[in-house]
Simulated scan of single mutants.
Amino acid sequence: MDQASNSPGVTGQFRPVPDLPKPLVGLWAPVGVGTVLWFVAFVIMLLTGVEGIWLWTTLAGGGLGFVGFGIIAWQAAASRRGSRGAQRGL
């Protein structure tokens, strides 16, 4: 079988690739969970009296989570506008 078998009405050698389900490509949930976890770690370290690089690393991780929310919103707006460089399906 050298030829791919297509359903009726599909032309060409290969079938078109279907879009992934929304839960698999949605970015809000994983970025939100990651951001919350970074801030929880920051609060735990504050309460336990940890000082030094790890305290500031957890704070930076939470801050970068907020930057991630901004990037997701920016890409989604660009996709809705139809911008050429935007990721589709966000």
Rank of each mutant, 00 (worst) to 15 (best):
L90C: 13
I53Y: 08
S83E: 15
A86V: 06
I71E: 11
N6E: 14
W56Q: 07
F42C: 09
W54D: 09
V43L: 10
R15W: 06
W74F: 04
R80Q: 03
L46R: 02
W28D: 13
Q75L: 06
L55E: 11
A4R: 14
M1T: 15
G85S: 11
L24F: 15
L59T: 00
G62S: 02
D19P: 11
V50E: 07
G32R: 04
L20V: 07
G63N: 03
T57I: 00
E51M: 05
M45K: 11
W56E: 01
P8W: 15
L90G: 13
W56N: 04
L59F: 07
F42M: 01
A77F: 15
V25G: 07
R88Q: 08
L37Y: 00
V67E: 01
Q3R: 15
I44N: 11
I72N: 03
W54N: 14
G9Q: 12
R80I: 11
T57R: 06
M45T: 13
G70A: 04
V33R: 08
A60L: 05
A73K: 09
L47F: 05
F14M: 06
A29Y: 06
G89V: 02
G61A: 14
G62N: 06
G62M: 04
V67K: 03
W54G: 03
V43P: 02
P18V: 02
L46G: 14
R84W: 02
L24K: 04
M45D: 10
F39H: 01
L20A: 15
G82V: 02
G68E: 13
P8E: 14
V33M: 06
S5E: 11
D2G: 13
P30I: 01
W28L: 12
A78T: 00
F66Q: 03
V17W: 05
M1I: 10
T57F: 13
L20S: 12
G68I: 00
T48V: 13
F69I: 08
V10Q: 10
M1W: 01
G85I: 05
A29W: 12
W38M: 13
A76L: 05
D2N: 11
G63F: 09
L20C: 10
L59P: 06
V17N: 13
G68M: 03
R84C: 04
P8R: 10
S79V: 03
I72W: 08
L24T: 05
S5D: 04
I72R: 10
A78C: 03
F14L: 10
A41D: 05
F69P: 07
G61M: 12
V67T: 03
